[in-house]
């Protein structure tokens, strides 16, 4: 089972994501954005960063990178596709996930750990988590403010306080409905703004990211034939 890590020019979390999955015992492979085939890849992750400089609009250019056709095909086959931060933005731009991401409410970049509450276990991101479980995961984004744009959305994670309570103060970036992660209807494509790979060892201050990454790894084998 091999995880393809899609790297665009300007992506910068590709090695961190590989490190995290390898720490869980999974195999990873870096996939440059010009690749057109994902043969031998069982699922893909679009890591964080600034794909194509995030010029024009986050993810707007990346969705046209050659590899995206293959990613769409993989998603249509029911294979796991996960977007983290900038990868989430790319998946929204590509139409693989509903809604979109705009500038944070305070118009400032935010890099700090936040609390998210598991809303649903029915996705490749959350299947190893309990509904209502509160996780601590670092956020690292300027355009992290999720809007549904009126689309129907399956919410996987919401920003809350440490006790799991929703409040304006616990919503770091002004996201609609405090949404931190969503999935498609089938649950095989998911995106989240926080960085689970930044919460996998004790020295990082939290290991909750493992729960989300383990969900993804478990999903690789559970794909319908």
């Amino acid at each position: 089972m091999s995880i393809g890590i899609i790297t665009f020019p300007g992506t910068n979390c590709e090695r961190d994501v590989a490190y995290a999955f390898e720490a869980l015992g999974a195999d990873t492979e870096q996939v440059w954005h010009r690749e057109t085939s994902l043969d031998g890849i069982d699922g893909v992750v679009l890591p964080g960063g600034f794909a194509h400089g995030d010029y024009l609009r986050t993810g707007a250019i990346a969705r046209f990178s050659p590899v995206m056709a293959a990613v769409e095909k993989l998603a249509a086959e029911g294979r796991p596709v996960l977007g983290i931060c900038n990868g989430f933005q790319v998946l929204c731009e590509a139409g693989l996930l509903p809604g979109g991401l705009i500038a944070n409410r305070d118009l400032r970049f935010i890099c700090r750990p936040v609390h998210v509450r598991v809303q649903s276990p029915d996705s490749i991101l959350t299947r190893a988590a309990r509904p209502g479980q509160v996780l601590t995961i670092p956020l690292n984004s300027y355009e992290g403010n999720y809007i549904t744009g009126g689309d129907a959305v399956r919410v996987m994670l919401r920003y809350t306080d440490a006790a799991g309570t929703l409040s304006d103060a616990a919503n770091p970036n002004g996201s609609e409905g405090a949404i931190a992660a969503v999935a498609n209807t089938a649950g095989n494509v998911a995106g989240l703004m926080p960085h689970p790979e930044r919460a996998i060892e004790d020295f990082m201050g939290s290991t909750d990211g493992r729960i989300l990454l383990e969900s993804f790894v478990a999903s690789l084998e559970a794909v319908p034939a």
């Binding site: 090695r15 890099c111 690292n140 790979e197």
Partner: peptide, 13 residues
Amino acid sequence: YEQFDHMLFLNTV
């Protein structure tokens, strides 16, 4: 410093 990415590379002890 919360406006700066201070966690990239997973090395920040």
